[in-house]
């Protein structure tokens, strides 16, 4: 299962980077979104995967805990998702402004 998610992360990165090297702001921002998702999957996979048990401790604490998913990468990713959303929204508005000001969203000349 790690292999398949590693490939997913790789594809998200490849597609995101390819789009970021295009000339239009639209593509650049969509690329940014893909890379955000790719990064989250990358961190998620790196921490090791566990099916089923979330990192929530049952109400009656058992003698030995069942194996559960690693909470540390999850905390990181949770933050990253929201921050990623903020960054994406901000760059969208920036693109919107560039488009309005220059009448084009070609990034050649937008430095």
């Amino acid at each position: 299962m790690e292999l398949q998610l590693a490939i997913v992360a790789g594809v998200l990165y490849a597609a995101g980077l390819y789009l970021m090297m295009r000339r239009q702001l639209v593509q650049l921002i969509i690329g940014l979104g893909l890379i955000t998702n790719g990064t989250n999957v990358l961190i998620f996979t790196s921490g090791g995967l566990t099916r089923t048990n979330p990192p929530v401790i049952p109400e009656e604490m058992p003698e030995t805990l069942e194996p559960f998913a690693d909470p540390v990468p999850q905390a990181l990713i949770l933050t990253a998702i929201v921050i990623g959303f903020g960054v994406l929204a901000f760059s969208l508005v920036l693109a919107h402004r560039v488009h309005k000001a220059s009448g084009s969203d070609d990034v050649r000349g937008a430095s």
Binding site: A15, L17, Y18, M21, G38, L42
Partner: peptide, 20 residues
């Protein structure tokens, strides 16, 4: 660009596997 992007993608996959 596609070649560069794919190269980076492969690298990310390898890194993920490595750390997993």
């Amino acid at each position: 660009d596609a070649i560069i992007a794919c190269g980076c993608g492969v690298l990310v996959t390898l890194l993920a596997l490595d750390s997993a």
